[in-house]
């Protein structure tokens, strides 16, 4: 039996003599149209509503799949050798003695804490509350871009162009949201640009993602002032955008690992190793204005849950 004569659209007239070219041409034209529409549309491209609709459908499915997979991916953690555990005991003992020492010097720390308190209240007025979320989908390297899906969307109070952080530092920014998910552009993506400030010298610059594929990822720092030479090990934090969108100010990004000076371009280029391990992203926080209404507990700037 000829397969071609069975399809709903194929071969009724042509039998099994081969496919109709017109279908192929129509499909190729449709692809070209789609690419053109999206390429020239920019942020308000006509494809954007379709993306949103698709996200509404696939978001919950990805969420469920990620939740189902999580116990399986945790399996390697169960198998720990005796030497691992011995190592862990040694670490914990060391930590314990450290903590004991800290308790003995708590007076100094209390003063320091008072200073931190001031900072916290400053943070409170900045309104850096966090909506916690988990990563449920990761873009493949084949797409040559670094994006992830998180399981919090507009219902959780998230909007495009908000900063995404985790416990270690800057993760990226929200590109678009659906009601239950959001797509995050990681700072290591080749199209990501973040204003950065070197912590020690307060020098400003721009952090470009290098688009490294795979688990690792690095950033290039280009300083505004060519005469400044960043030194190895200096910490870079975000410079911050107007109104805190897309990046709030003062989030640690990474550390300078290499410095290149090119005679030809008379500029300094530094390579930044981000604090965040982009290969093991899981729990992240989205910076939202204080008092945002959300479908989940929001971590307020002072550490309270609301």
């Amino acid at each position: 039996m000829a397969v071609f004569s069975t399809g709903p659209r194929s071969g009724e007239r042509y039998g099994s003599r081969g496919p109709r070219r017109s279908v192929l041409v129509a499909l190729l034209l449709a692809c070209a149209t789609l690419i053109t529409l999206d390429y020239h549309g920019g942020t308000d491209s006509p494809v954007e509503p379709a993306r949103r609709a698709m996200g509404e459908v696939f978001g919950p499915v990805e969420s469920a799949a990620a939740a189902a997979v999580r116990p399986v991916t945790a399996v390697p953690d169960w198998f720990r050798s005796r030497s691992d555990m011995r190592h862990e005991i040694a670490t914990l003992t060391a930590e314990n003695s450290d903590l004991r020492q800290q308790v003995n010097t708590s007076g100094v720390d209390r003063n320091r804490l008072a200073e931190y308190d001031d900072l916290t209240s400053a943070a409170k007025t900045l309104g850096q509350a966090l909506v916690p979320a988990r990563v449920i989908g990761i873009g493949a390297s084949q797409t040559f871009s670094r994006t992830v899906t998180i399981d919090a969307g507009s219902k959780a109070g998230i909007a495009p162009d908000q900063t995404v952080v985790n416990a270690d530092g800057l993760v990226g920014r929200v590109l678009r949201v659906t009601s239950t998910t959001a797509t995050v552009l990681l700072v290591i993506d080749a199209e990501s640009v973040v204003g950065g400030r070197i912590g020690d010298s307060m020098q400003l610059g721009f952090l470009h993602g290098r688009g490294d594929l795979g688990r690792s990822g690095r950033l290039d720092l280009e300083l505004v002032d060519d005469s400044v030479v960043p030194s190895k090990g200096e910490v870079v934090v975000t410079w911050g955008s107007q109104g805190g969108a897309p990046y709030v100010t003062g989030v640690p990004v990474g550390r300078v690992t290499q410095v290149f000076s090119s005679l030809r371009q008379t500029s300094q280029r530094a390579v930044i190793q981000p604090f965040v391990d982009f290969g093991a992203l899981d729990v992240v926080g989205v910076v939202v204005p204080s008092g945002t209404r959300s479908d989940r507990a929001v971590v307020e700037a002072d550490g309270r849950l609301q």
């Binding site: 070209a32 789609l34 529409l37 993306r51 797409t143 995050v184």
Partner: peptide, 10 residues
Amino acid sequence: LAPPADHVAG
């Protein structure tokens, strides 16, 4: 179109 895609559609 499905998240987390962000490239030019098509």
